[in-house]
Design a protein around this nucleic acid. Structure first.
Lengths: 207, 207
DNA sequence: CTCTTGTTTAACTAATTGGTTAAAATATAT
DNA sequence: ATATATTTTAACCAATTAGTTAAACAAGAG
């Protein structure tokens, strides 16, 4: 399943094509003609709908990040135990990245380029709620430590390690496929989620 | 400390400048004039030494990856226990990325772009030894499992999780700095290495 | 000092690129 | 059927870009 540009229209086709192009080449390296080719439309249509390259880029960032944060927030059940909430977040992120591998790649690409569009999109989408998502997860980890469920780890470090472990496979997927000679990728990915839950919780859970 | 272009000459300045430009914008998005500006040389000099943009890009990839793998191989002491070998690898990678944050970023950028230059550089550098590095690390993990030191984890998954945890901070550094409100980064980085060793080994060590 | 080699530069060329435009085609409303 | 609005296109323009070149400069050898 792809990014939720679920209607088929020239505008959606352009956004879908632009996402692919920006993920591969960044804003500067992306070519408008190449986006038009991928979307099977005339290049002028890109300008008709989005005015210019930067606007198109911004629109793609906003849509991608909004979708990302929406699905993560929906995964948190505050009535559940800290352990289960963390497990739920891991599952939600993993599922999101599995279905939309472009998301972590685009985010990191934009981080590399120090894109002001990224900062803007990030601020608007990821910190729109009263408690931004990363703070929410830190609170869950702190709560787990207080209750004696988790070992007294550094919550910010634990957040980084958890997110990094989840994201890394999808970020480094071509590298991983070649280096590890993965033959059945669907099976490998199922095993990956199991392994992450196992490793993270052996690393966090107080025994 | 930077990438080991340790001499100061126009050629080294160009390579250093090119690395920065390619890390930010990729090969297509990088500008030769911008590289020349960063290196404080005339643009024609880039072509004088490296012929064209693609050659310059290749040269940068080769040098970066060669340096990366050299320092990792030097960190492995086969006479040591599997646990200490893994600890050594973690330390070596962490130290390498700390000193050269461009390395993980460049690798992931090239992965995104499906660069044939990357595949070539990767093949030449990372798999030049009789036992390529990833296989070496898998062997160490398997050995640890056989000796009863490690839990019976999936070695390939464990390799991904270990490398991912180490690399992620440096890949996502601007994101992490903003999201986690890091004030004293040197201290945070010291804590990060401790945390990684702690988390990974609570996750791997059989108790 | 002179000659040769290597380095560096300003100016240039040709191709590429983002963006524009007027006209044609299509869709919609009456 | 006609008029209007929207969408789409081929062709175009100006700016940008990679790469080239002849000449000037610097370094080295004899």
């Amino acid at each position: 399943m792809e990014i939720a540009f679920d209607e088929s229209s020239p505008q959606k086709e352009i956004l879908r094509a632009a996402l692919k192009e920006f993920v591969e080449y960044g804003q500067k390296g992306a070519r408008m003609q190449s986006i038009a080719d991928r979307a099977n439309v005339n290049k002028a249509l890109l300008h008709y709908y989005f005015s210019n390259k930067q606007n198109l880029h911004r629109e793609v960032l906003h849509r991608v990040f909004r979708m990302a944060i929406n699905s993560i927030y929906q995964s948190i059940d505050e009535a559940d135990s800290p352990e289960n909430q963390i497990r739920g977040i891991i599952r939600a992120y993993f599922s999101l990245f599995r279905q939309n591998p472009a998301i972590p790649r685009l985010m990191l690409l934009e981080l590399n380029a120090n894109s002001s569009d990224f900062i803007e999109a990030f601020t608007q989408v990821f910190q729109a709620d009263t408690v931004p998502f990363p703070q929410k997860m830190i609170q869950i980890i702190e709560d787990g430590i207080e209750r004696g469920i988790f070992r007294p780890v550094n919550p910010r470090q634990a957040l980084l390690s958890t997110l990094g472990t989840v994201a890394f496979y999808f970020i480094a997927r071509p590298f991983a496929r070649q280096v590890l000679s993965i033959e059945n990728e669907d099976q490998f990915i199922e095993e990956r989620l199991e392994h992450i839950q196992d490793l993270i919780f052996h690393g966090l859970i107080k025994e």
